[in-house]
Design a protein around this nucleic acid. Structure first.
Length: 529
DNA sequence: TGGCATCGCGCC
DNA sequence: AAAGGGCGCGATGCCA
């Protein structure tokens, strides 16, 4: 059974409608006496809940109500719109309902800071819109459209992702403000009382000034270029990798400044004050926020936490973190996708195994070669390495080369489960733009399939851990963090391995390609195994 | 003052 | 001239 649920605005009654699996209503609208009734329905029927959008689950979670399965109409509409070659067009519930009724969809309403639709009904003079009716109708149309089993799996995984994301935000990532502050103080000096530069940054900036013999704002690329030009160094950018090769006394303090200034600006004390409350960092995840199906986040830069700050991620007393990450996920995905199984030898370190075979044991070369093949590098050393791979692994390389050709020709490409890339835009046939689109579609097929492997893994893991004390607390493309009482950590490690294998099987059936997930049980994120 | 593009760099 | 994919975010610099 399925149950469509409209949580409505805060404090309003929750309305539901029971549906058959094909979306046909089984009964009329029910107004539930409270959220406890949702929990009763979950216990009694374990339905697939039909939500309008990821945000719908938040009110249930706030009341302590968890559900097992969902169908997220907005996320599924995004998949279907993209599959129709209309990626990026409106795919909210209102837009989907309009499309279904043969009307032109309006742009999706902007969301306010809480993720609610901003000013709902502000311009609506008629009676309150019946969102539940739209939900039921659009869901039924989506079920009819989801004829392909892979797309059905993708729709379920994407929807499960929305549940995971809300639960992660509700739990939060355990974060020690004291450890974070200590790290900052260690690297930057004491926190400046009135804002401004911390002592270490002020010192480095002064050294840069002294080296140039005049004040230069180290945060201004334009000023730096002028200052270096005056000193006889004509640079085109002030990127760290370029500065490193410049022989000038300002370079050393400037590089040190850049690194620490970034830490201060992006993840310094003001970040700490804004994003960490009660020992938890609560980023807002945006499921499907990236065209490839990767998640994005809104605020807090959760997917860019610098490695230097990982020591601030600490389990509660008596609890542990289980850190699980997939080793070399994308090349393995390419091997499974293309059927070129020689690309993924049965080894924990794929790069090392390939290096031994093809690159005289040079692991760095093997890694660069594979990444370059998936990103579309063609120049210099990377190009030569890719050429070597192309001769030895024609099927695997042919797969990404084919995706690149499709993209260059303006065609659509798809992930393994059927996520579709955005269409070419006017002007993409111009040679430079066409090659850029080729690099994008080349990477899309791999990155998007890797993202759905990770999504299925998350969904499986969530179901395996359901009802237990372990919580999923962080997810970053190919890495998952769980927070659990120390005594259940071994069970969580087992669940992670099981979920990874299930994800492999559900995507690729009996492929011999392995997707090893290394899990370590630690007190803090920066601890080695 | 606020919007916007660009740069640069953090993560994968 | 050649050019490696996807993001979020903050600072700068320009504009209205």
């Amino acid at each position: 059974m399925r149950i469509a649920l409209d949580p409505g605005p805060r404090e309003s009654p929750v309305r539901v409608r029971r549906l058959a699996d094909d979306g046909t209503p089984l009964a009329g609208t029910e107004v539930l006496p409270g959220l406890g009734a949702v929990a009763d329905l979950e216990r009694e029927h374990a339905p697939r809940w039909v939500f309008a959008r990821p945000r719908s689950y938040r009110r249930l979670l706030a009341a302590g109500v968890r559900v097992g399965r969902a169908h997220d109409v907005e996320l599924v509409e995004g998949l279907l719109v993209a599959a129709a070659g209309r990626s990026g067009e409106p795919h909210g519930l209102a837009a989907a309902a309009a499309r279904l009724a043969g009307r032109t969809p309006e742009p999706d309403p902007p969301l306010d800071a809480d993720g609610d639709e901003a000013s709902p009904g502000l311009f609506d003079t008629g009676p309150a819109h019946d969102e539940l009716a739209d939900l039921v109708a659009v869901h039924a149309a989506q079920v009819r459209a989801l004829t392909d089993p892979r797309m059905r799996l993708l729709a379920a995984a994407e929807s499960a992702g929305a549940l995971v994301a809300e639960e992660m935000t509700a739990h939060g990532l355990p974060w020690s403000a004291a450890a974070h502050d200590a790290l900052l103080t260690d690297l930057l000096g004491p926190r400046p009382v009135l804002g401004g530069r911390p002592p270490v940054l002020a010192t480095l900036a002064a050294e840069v000034d002294a080296a140039f013999g005049r004040p230069v704002n180290p945060d201004s690329p334009a000023e730096l270029l002028r200052a270096f030009a005056r000193a006889g160094h004509e640079l085109t950018t002030t990127r760290a990798w370029e500065l490193r090769h410049v022989a000038h006394p300002a370079v050393a303090p400037l590089l040190a400044y850049k690194e620490l200034a970034r830490l201060h600006a992006a993840h310094g004390w003001s970040w700490l004050a804004t994003w960490v409350r009660d020992g938890r960092f609560r980023p807002e995840y945006v499921v499907g926020g990236v065209v490839t199906g990767r998640w994005a986040t809104r605020g807090g830069g959760a997917l860019q936490i610098p490695r230097t700050l990982r020591g601030a991620v600490r389990a509660d007393p008596g609890w542990r973190l289980v850190v699980a990450d997939a080793a070399q996920l994308e090349p393995r995905v390419l091997a499974a996708l293309s059927g070129d199984h020689a690309l993924a030898p049965d080894a924990d370190d794929l790069y090392a195994a390939l290096a031994a075979r093809e690159f005289g044991g040079d692991r760095g070369q093997a890694k660069l070669a594979l990444l370059s093949a998936m990103y579309g590098a063609s120049a210099g050393q990377a190009g030569e390495l890719v050429a070597r791979l192309r001769r030895r692994y024609p099927a695997g390389m042919g797969y990404v080369d084919g995706a690149a050709r499709d993209g260059e020709a303006g065609r659509l490409v798809h992930s393994h489960l059927g996520r579709t890339c955005p269409p070419a835009r006017p002007g993409d046939e111009e040679p430079g733009r066409a090659r850029a689109r080729g690099r994008f579609t080349r990477n899309f097929v791999v990155q998007a399939t890797a993202a759905e492997w990770a999504l299925v893994l998350l969904a499986e893991l969530r179901l395996l851990l359901r009802g237990g004390p372990a919580e999923l607390v962080f997810f970053q493309h190919d890495e998952v963090l769980l927070h659990c009482p120390a005594e259940v950590a071994p069970d969580v490690v087992d669940a992670v391995a099981t979920a990874a294998d299930t994800a492999r099987r559900r995507l690729f059936g009996d492929t011999p390609v392995r997707f090893p997930l290394t899990a370590r049980v630690v007190g803090s994120y920066d601890e080695p195994a």
